[in-house]
Write a protein that binds this DNA or RNA. Structure first.
Lengths: 205, 205, 205, 205
DNA sequence: GATGAATGAGGATTCATTCAT
DNA sequence: TATGAATGAATCCTCATTCAT
């Protein structure tokens, strides 16, 4: 059975929901809108999902998974030195930007709409951010262990701060799609903050 | 009569809305909930506001204004050198943290719920973030002009990245109130990123 | 006390109600609209009237009274012959038309809006029409007694039919104010129907 | 399946609305009343109609259509002489009376309640009366052309006057259902006015 | 008397969800 | 399995009415 060829009902419903939730917002989007987008009866949605928030939950899961794929593509222990890590950050940054630029709905869903549906969805969201922070923290710890990152940084907290910078770029795009043009400037700013700081390098004191 | 003492109806409705919207979310909160919180008739709300989203708009305005007060308390051109700026970042960070810790609802409203109500509210939100970015950019440009910040940083973009770090702290608290305990660690991480970068200072190479 | 000079609050409220009810319809008009029209507080209305339908009742009463004045101006027994009666019908017709033309709201209130408010108002309306029919019937009976109107006409029913013709002219104006231009044509048609019939007068067969 | 036997949801809603609007008046009738009358959920009404006034509009349309059927049953050019026309007026009068007697709600809806809902409904009402007047005018012109009605009568205006007489009979019934007893007296009065006038036929002067 | 702030009953409308076909 | 007609809980909002000032 060509299960790979056709996306499957469930997935196409999620695709439609992804689009519609992003376009109208979760609250304003009706189940009938999702079904209308697909040209199927709205009762059908309930054969694949318990209820509306279950759809939202699945959409959020998928969206977070897509982000996780990008974040987790490089293994945290692969970098041996500062330059490699710097290159890796550029790489991940670019991939993330590509993801959010290709699908501006993604950012809107993940960073705004679906996080406000429900306490449970909020929890889902929180957990994903925690996972992402763990990833970043692993990079930082790897750098500390290998000696090219400061030993006195708090990996857990710094990881969240770093992720905040990165995801703020995505939120930016979600708020204003023209912000995709900032891609390289944004990544450069992040890299500069991470590896150099903003201070004017003094004369070799 | 101590007219200063009593907040006035309009303000007390905003207070209640602030609390209720943060507790239940905008969509789930009914006008009756706001009124119930105050022990007034729900019709009364409509003497002070056009409709529900008008309440939300005013709540958001007030919340953003409160943040603006903290952000704008220090004038951007007051810092003469790196150490002063570093101290100022600490100061602002602490004040912001104090604000969001004192009222965890604030972060939830500003960074999550009220930004998803409406296209107009989203716009309101966007504009406020732009104003905040302008502030931070002014700090950065001041530092560049005085020579203690790198001349090659993109003030406009970097300002947004920096704000992203800072507000992510607030979002953190909004997502999980126990995160207030991270206050100093968070600010230290931000300051380290801004002024030092994460790289292990090498031996005088 | 110059009670005649100033119209009195109660009357000015009725004036305003007359105008507003006719403009917006009874259901759509709010007590606040009446008060706003006069520049008085809406609570004040309740010092002069029990409630909204009490205002409507008084407006209807006054309107019906105004019509009654015109209808009852000529005494039914004053006409001695057919020509006098015909002249009288012209006179009454003209006066009624003048009344409804001078105040198009009148027709709308009496023949449409205020008759649908309430069972009690409907009753008020019915009674007034009965009184008007009694008047017309008295004319007809006077004509029968004096021998210039057919003895075999049913005065009670015919009176209502005649009034129907007449008031339909007012309803016409209420529905479409430009219909005032039809005044003479209308009265002529009514007079023709009453006194001549529509049949082509045959040769003295 | 006897699809003709069951009226169809939309129609049964209109039936219920017809009854309920006539019983309570448009303003006082709630959508829930209509639904309750049918034993269906009130949300169902909104599957067939946009909103309450849309229901009213359809009810009015149907009611006016029912009257039009009766009015238009006889072709205006079918009468060759005065006696035939007189007979036809009797016939139409009887049929109209039968219609309004069979369904007293009809008159109340058409001549009172539904004409006050809305400017658009008022317009609908006005147009229908215009159409009815056109019909009657066609009868009159036919009579003029064939020479049995007075050449000097204004067909357009007289048609409205005549219709006023006729519909006043229906309004009468709507105001007071016992008025159905007046049927023949009413029609006789109308016919007398139309064909004979009220004047006592003089001796061959 | 006059005012208008406050009230809450009332009703239109929406839409997630169910279930017979 | 798919459908969409039916449902009614839920909620916004209006506005007649009250009453303290």
């Amino acid at each position: 059975m060509a299960r790979t060829a056709e996306p499957g009902r469930r997935d196409s419903i999620l695709d439609a929901a992804h689009a519609v939730f992003a376009r109208k917002g979760y609250a304003a989007a009706g189940i009938a809108d999702l079904a209308g987008e697909l040209g199927i009866g709205h009762g059908t949605v309930y054969r694949y999902f318990e209820n509306k928030r279950d759809v939202a939950s699945a959409v959020l899961d998928r969206a977070l998974g897509r982000i996780a794929e990008v974040v987790a593509a490089d293994p945290p222990d692969a970098t041996a030195g500062l330059d490699e890590y710097r290159a890796q950050v550029w790489r991940i940054g670019r991939r993330l930007y590509a993801l959010f630029a290709a699908d501006p709905a993604l950012g809107r869903l993940v960073f705004f709409d679906l996080a406000t549906v429900d306490e449970r969805l909020r929890e889902q969201h929180r957990e994903a951010l925690d996972r992402f922070a763990d990833y970043t923290a692993a990079y930082l710890r790897n750098g500390q262990e290998r000696g090219f990152l400061r030993g006195d940084l708090d990996a857990r907290v710094t990881a969240r701060v770093v992720n905040g910078m990165v995801f703020e770029g995505a939120a930016q795009v979600a708020r204003d799609p023209t912000a995709v043009a900032l891609r390289d400037a944004w990544i450069r700013a992040v890299v500069m903050l991470m590896f150099d700081g903003l201070a004017q390098p003094g004369p070799p004191s």
